[in-house]
């Protein structure tokens, strides 16, 4: 009886899954944290997921340096060396797009994060690459965005 119940619940939860996955090409999230704290949460979560932050481009610093007024705006690059190396070797088109990046910018007292759904890279890579890797990236990315979204 118990097992039977469990399988019904399993079935129901499975049925529920399709409503949670939504095929967006741009993935965004909002953090109620101010920029510095959200940036910290982002970098911590990226590292916790096993990726290396390779560089942070300070777009705002460049802009203000040139006399433009702007709020905090950074682009964070991250990846795993073995994966990036394999992908750029097998699919040269990806050399233009990798390593993946996340834009993070202040919006008043809060912070917004934007990235391209890694599934888009699957289209760019074509048949040369098993798309499963981009599915992993997407799930890691959503998990990272979730971390930043709930960080307090």
């Amino acid at each position: 009886m118990k097992r039977w119940l469990a399988s019904i619940f399993l079935l129901c939860s499975l049925l529920h899954i399709p409503s949670l996955v939504y095929a967006e090409e741009i993935i965004m999230t909002r953090s109620v944290l101010a920029f510095p704290e959200a940036m910290l949460a982002l970098q911590e979560s990226i590292t916790a997921h096993g990726y290396t932050v390779s560089r942070v481009q300070r777009i705002d610093v460049g802009l203000t340096g040139m006399g433009y007024k702007t709020d905090k705006y950074r682009v964070v690059f991250a990846g795993k060396i073995e994966e990036i190396r394999e992908l750029t070797d097998k699919a040269p088109a990806l050399t233009a797009y990798l390593p993946p990046k996340i834009s993070i910018f202040a919006e008043g007292e809060q912070t917004v994060l934007v990235t391209i759904n890694p599934q888009v890279y699957a289209e760019i890579a074509g048949d040369a690459i098993d798309p499963i890797i981009f599915t992993h990236w997407e799930s890691d990315l959503r998990s990272i965005f979730h971390d930043v979204n709930v960080a307090r």
Binding site: I26, M28, Q57, I59, Y73, V75, T95, A96, K101, S103, I104, F105, E107, V112, V114, T115, I116
Partner: peptide, 13 residues
């Protein structure tokens, strides 16, 4: 479009 960071910085490989 504030999301334009996804194009930044401009680059050639």
């Amino acid at each position: 479009d504030p999301r334009v960071g996804m194009f930044l910085p401009c680059r050639v490989t």
